[in-house]
Design a protein around this nucleic acid. Sequence first.
RNA 1: GGGCCCAUAGCUCAGCGGUAGAGCAGCGGCCUUUUAAGCCGUUGGCCGAAGGUUCGAAUCCUUCUGGGCUCACCA
Length: 577
Amino acid sequence: MSDRGRPDPSGDFESTLERIMAERAGKADRLRAAGHHPYRNDVKPTHTVASVRARYEPTKPPPAPAPEPGAPRAKGDGEGIKPIDGDRVRVAGRVVAKRGFGKTVFAPVRDATGDLQLYLNVDHLDAGDFATILPELDVGDIVAAEGPLFWTKRGELSLLAARLQIVTKSVRPLPDKWHGLTDVEQRYRQRYVDLAVSPEVRAVFTKRSQIVAGIRRYLDARGFLEVETPMMHPIIGGAAARPFVTHHNALDMRLYMRIAPELYLKRLVVGGFDRVYEINRNFRNEGLSRQHNPEFTMLEFYWAYAVYTDLMDLTEELVTDLATAVNGSTRVTWDGTEVELARPWRRVTVRDACHQLGGLPVADVDALFTDPVAAAGIALRHGVPAHDVAKLLLAGVPEGAWDGLELGLLTTELKDPATRDRVAPRVCERYAQGDEARIRAGHLGYYVFEATAEAKLVQPTFLTQFPLAVSPLARKNEADPAFCDRFELFVCGKEIANGFSELNDPADQRARFAAQSRARAAGADEAMDYDEDYCRALEVGMPPTAGEGIGIDRLAMLLTGQASIRDVILFPLMRPE
RNA sequence: GGGCCCAUAGCUCAGCGGUAGAGCAGCGGCCUUUUAAGCCGUUGGCCGAAGGUUCGAAUCCUUCUGGGCUCACCA
């Protein structure tokens, strides 16, 4: 042991980390021995860094000429420093760097609002603090310092510390001060470190918070009521996705983590809440990707006496307002693409998108959405998997009437060009006539849209007029009942929002649920359950309503320019370490 | 789940068949306006795990674990 009580450097530690942590714990012990609690809770800052800056920034002197490179530095005695005024402030935060000069130490400190440099000098700091606290100070410690402000020669606002306290001793070292934490796995697993050392990461999550707050303000101001509906559902509904399953012991009941709040929110519209919204988590048991986290945040809102075009208008206004509030601009760069969010946004039907963006000839597009046999051929030609085509064709077949129509066999036959042209008619001629034929075709058409056009919706675009089969809760279009008054908002090929005029005809809704049940029987395990109580609610009567869901994570990605959803979710799902 | 890539000191990275390196951080010094401070000295690693090939493996092969990208599913 040295005379200063340092741990024996030849001590037997298993790693540098353990040695550093032992050294820091030793510093905490020495602080304790000197009467300074290393984890004290009696410190109240008088100012945040931001408030200090706001107050003193106007006093900033003109910049001094930069010294010649390599010129010898003038030595001072610390007496030449002139505080800006006689007022003292006390700020507290984490030490993010330490530059020692023997009798002077510069230590920038970071609180929730910003960074401020402490100037810790033997002639200005309390002699006891200089002798007993400063030697134990490490980068990462949380400190409080008190004193007046001054401007350094280089024009840095600095706190001329008269007192210094270590409020919380950090015993685990922070990452490299220059590179920070770049290992993405550690950034997500140890988000506290990521946030502590990366102001730009903090800024992303601050913006996310502002976005959510802005949405609430916007909707509250328009008479929408924020509500909370169940997260645990006895049946699956409101979206097409596989659920997480859980169990309630006392009721011995299977429950599903909700995949969407839609059917509950519309029950509230039936009850007379004409404008409601919920911002909360949905859970979907699907794959993870840069666009998908198993739990994600959704805004859903329902607006009585509105139609889907009103929703598009609202969405344009809301998103541009948010962009301006958060970024001061309607231009953003998302994943390398320049996006202009200024209104108005393009509106294009699914059919027109197939033609204009997907490059399909008009004749093909016409056939695609009317004739399931032709649609099957077009879909296969554009790379839609035979298995999916088979599943869609079978979804039109009433249960119990399959006679030999089997998914695997049909898939095989569709894969084979020799049998392909024979097999689709065999299914469709018997079970897909009239409207049903157009519904089957529309579903295939949507698959073709996804295969050919979706990725080309780069600038904000409302895709409208969705095929009925993919919209079991949306109102039919009056002019063409094979389509629904529905839209989705796409930016950079990614879906941000989904809204429609709500289906409020209970008989039609029952037919749609029945179709979902058939689809499930044909192998679509993401199809919705038949929700009897929801039908009962519609029978009580829901006013004409339009409703929309906006993916908050993706909106936050867009407005913060983040390419990965994990960079807008504080604690994304990871495998256990 | 499939394909491709990654894993070396606390952090950021080099080394890619001959037995472990740098910068930062740490530790000991010098230094009273620095800001990736500087200078001198110095500690620190079972090279993700387990097998295999080889006289010899961080390096080549296999498997596993974790992560990234991507495809599929989906929002």
